[in-house]
Computed example of a mutant assay.
Amino acid sequence: MDDLRDTAEPEDEVELAVEGALRPQSLAEFVGQQKVRGQLQLLLDAAKIQQRPADHILLSGPPGLGKTTLAMIVAHESDRPLRLSSGPAIQHAGDLAALLSSLTPGEVLFIDEIHRMARSAEEMLYLAMEDFRIDIMVGKGAGATSIPLDLAPFTLVGATTRSGLLPNPLRDRFGFTAHLEYYEPGELERVIERSAVMLDVQLPPAARAEIAKRSRGTPRISNRLLRRVRDYVIVHGSDQGATMGIVDAALDLYDVDSIGLDRLDRAVLDSLVRRFRGGPVGLSTLAVAVGEEGETIESVVEPYLVRIGFIGRTPRGRIAMPEAYEHLGLPSPESVLRFNDL
């Protein structure tokens, strides 16, 4: 079955196009993140009044919460063009120099996963953000010469899922840093309601609530689950739209359970509980047991399982908490119960 969990990249160009169509175009349309929206609105309004590019912005938080959408909104509300790039694509200082030197005055540059840029590019970015200038090295060895190159003033919007990996000199050069939080079910219902109208899906309130409950606090997942429900309606030809029965059937087909766990989540829990007797077990051992990369377990699976209290982190490794046993329909060992009481 397809994996409907949230990832940093859409599955294909069709998914990307649909996600783009569902993105809000302004801060007023953006659902959730109320405090961040207010802070961004003030920053953009001040820049517009002073007729200058907005300060550099760093957006941090888990995938799927709207960092790319907010970058697009910053460009739209500033009436500036937007240039998109990503940290993994900037592996040399020359890559960044070519990108920065081609920016037009006031342009908004969005760098996704900015913490994955090459160190040499990061060091070049310090000067570019602060003085709108870079130094180009010409030649090699004793004859090498540094030539300063002035840049057009621009606004950098950086996005990261791991802000702790950013060096302090880079982090300090952002004028505004925002951390995006997971969404509450009511906020996700509003996201789903808006998307359902755009996708022409009849969705009663109970069905919206059910999709929101299985969305792991993430709007991107809400929209993907909604699209799978829409597909089910189209294929099976329901005249009543997406009823509760259809929502259950569609999401069960894609192995998304009642609280949003999918196949890989349950494989990790099942392995931790049954094969390793609740742990503690190291991350690399757990990853090998389920046939997945350790980085995927740590960055995609584990944050949600820790957040809902199914997995605990200890100095000796990961352990299954009583809630995990309860979800799997198994009794909790006394050792786990004692750990939970500490």
Rank of each mutant, 00 (worst) to 15 (best):
D3V: 02
R5D: 04
A8Y: 15
P10L: 11
D12C: 11
V14R: 01
E15C: 03
E19I: 09
L22K: 00
P24H: 00
Q33C: 07
Q34M: 11
L40M: 13
L43C: 15
L44V: 13
D45Q: 13
A47Y: 02
I49T: 13
D55E: 08
L58A: 04
L59W: 05
T68I: 05
M72Y: 14
R80P: 12
H92C: 11
D95P: 13
L103Y: 02
A121D: 03
E122L: 07
Y126F: 06
I134R: 00
I136Q: 10
P153L: 07
V157N: 10
T160Y: 06
L180W: 14
E189W: 04
M198V: 12
V201Q: 02
A207L: 06
R208W: 10
I221A: 13
Y232L: 02
H236F: 14
G237Y: 08
S238N: 08
D239K: 00
A242C: 02
A242P: 00
A249P: 07
D255F: 00
V256I: 02
I259T: 12
G260H: 03
D262M: 09
L269A: 07
V273L: 04
P280S: 04
E292L: 09
G294I: 10
P303H: 01
Y304A: 13
I311D: 10
A320P: 09
Y325Q: 00
H327W: 08
G329R: 00
